[in-house]
């Protein structure tokens, strides 16, 4: 017999691995949000005769809003296929701790959709004439903020997965909840550009992430139970 008993961590790794394997086998889900992020950000310089200095000063806001929309668009698929093919029922009925599996599932989804946004954001910063002092706070802010956005969006996704067309409803549910992350995330870049200390704002972004990571899985689990009924 080669049967190996797995501890909780190994079981969670299997869930993470599955999420990554699904991303590899359907790369469109990874590439599309990224393309959206690039194209939507690139529209702003094209939309009018913006002064370069003005463009640089609104760049943090542009990048954060488009990143937020890209995360939201990418999240719609988080539970969709699992809901359609019945895998979600198996997860809900398994004796495994649902809380951790959902947390890991969102983490896996963020690794393939949120993290690429963080990586490509500096390039878009160049495009939008973001001043040099803004890059570090932009990257760090997105690194702390996009997982929070993913977790919050996952709640909305879980609630709407049973509906046939959930796109706009998801936006209406999620965007108001994303405002704090947006305010602090874009604020941290602005503050740095003005030469003010940013440690406090980073702490707030970190606190929001911890809050979302600890509470969102409970809300996601409850929402999924409603959705499969």
């Amino acid at each position: 017999m080669t049967r190996q008993a797995l501890g909780l961590l190994a079981c969670l790794r299997a869930t993470l691995l599955r999420e990554l394997q699904i991303a590899v086998s359907s790369p469109g889900k990874v590439v599309n949000p990224l393309m959206f992020f690039v194209i939507a950000s690139a529209l702003f310089p094209l939309s009018g005769r913006l002064d370069l200095a003005v463009l640089g000063s609104i760049a943090p806001g542009i990048l954060w809003v488009t990143a937020l929309l890209a995360v939201m668009l990418s999240m719609e698929g988080l539970f969709r296929s699992d809901f359609d093919d019945g895998t979600l029922e198996q997860l809900l009925l398994s004796p495994q701790p649902l809380y951790f599996h959902l947390l890991v599932k969102v983490l896996g989804h963020w690794l393939v959709t949120g993290l690429p946004l963080v990586v490509i954001a500096p390039l878009l910063g160049l495009l939008l004439n973001l001043p040099a002092a803004g890059y570090q706070p932009l990257i760090l802010g997105l690194l702390l903020g996009t997982p929070t956005l993913s977790l919050v969006a996952a709640i909305g996704t879980a609630l709407t997965v049973g509906l046939a067309r959930s796109g706009l409803l998801l936006a209406v549910l999620i965007l108001p909840l994303s405002i704090p992350v947006l305010v602090f995330g874009a604020g941290v870049v602005d503050t740095a550009l003005n030469g003010l200390p940013v440690a406090g704002l980073f702490s707030l972004l970190g606190a929001l992430l911890l809050l979302a990571a600890s509470l969102a899985p409970l809300a996601i689990a409850a929402s999924l139970r409603i959705s499969v009924q």
């Binding site: 080669t2 190996q4 008993a5 190994a10 079981c11 299997a14 599955r18 997860l91």
Partner: peptide, 18 residues
Amino acid sequence: LQNLRWFCALQGYADDEA
């Protein structure tokens, strides 16, 4: 194989031969 590996992991074990 990938599908069933995850199913087994949810049961708390890994066994490719099975």
